[in-house]
Amino acid sequence: MPKATFRIWRGERGDGAWVDFETEVSEGMVVLDAVHDIQAEQAADLAVRWNCKAGKCGSCSAEINGMPRLMCMTRLDTLPLDEPVTIEPMKAFPHVRDLVTDVSWNYEVKKRIKPFKPRPPDAADGTWRMAQEDVERVQEFRKCIECFLCQDVCHVLRDHHKHDSFIGPRFLVHTAGLEMHPLDTEDRLADLKEKQGIGYCNITKCCTKVCPEHITITDNAIIPLKERVVDEFYDPIAKLFRIFRPKKTE
């Protein structure tokens, strides 16, 4: 079987080095298969987070040849194997060991977003009525598997480390899913502008490019939220119209 070289970044808490491993590759293999082979045959202590091997758990996020990708969904036949394949941990989060990073910041961010707050039930039995066509819009956002590749590639977090003032594309998608829900009555626009830093997004669309679930993050979530923030805070005519329009019903 042919062999390929995998250049894996190894180390602990930010200290480490590139290490080259050569292993056999065969048809149908993905990067995670190669990493597992290396782990089984050459480096039993190689730390790598993984779970489903099917692109649904979002655990095996890494940077392959410089681009954030899921290791389990990156087929080797899509990579040039005549030169070493680089595999690095994500850059936007604190390093733990080898390919594993500490993504717990994301869970803390999620707690700070105002939760779903539905209007009172439509029927006496405590249920609601809504049209399928209205729910479909937010269904796209529910495909997110929380792999955090979008957070990793976002230069606001990756290069500028604005973790304190910007929630990142993943949680803008989460907020969009709540804010655009036909039953929701909560107002998150002030938080988006002030605390969650939607203005930091400069629409590079990198988050959309790396999303393994193909969520149209920028066009369907972030820009519509930006437009709602414009309505609320930057558009004097919209402000005027709002005086005569009732707010979201509770």
Partner: peptide, 9 residues
Amino acid sequence: TTNGDFRLP
């Protein structure tokens, strides 16, 4: 082989 090192983030 080793090829340099870096810190994260």
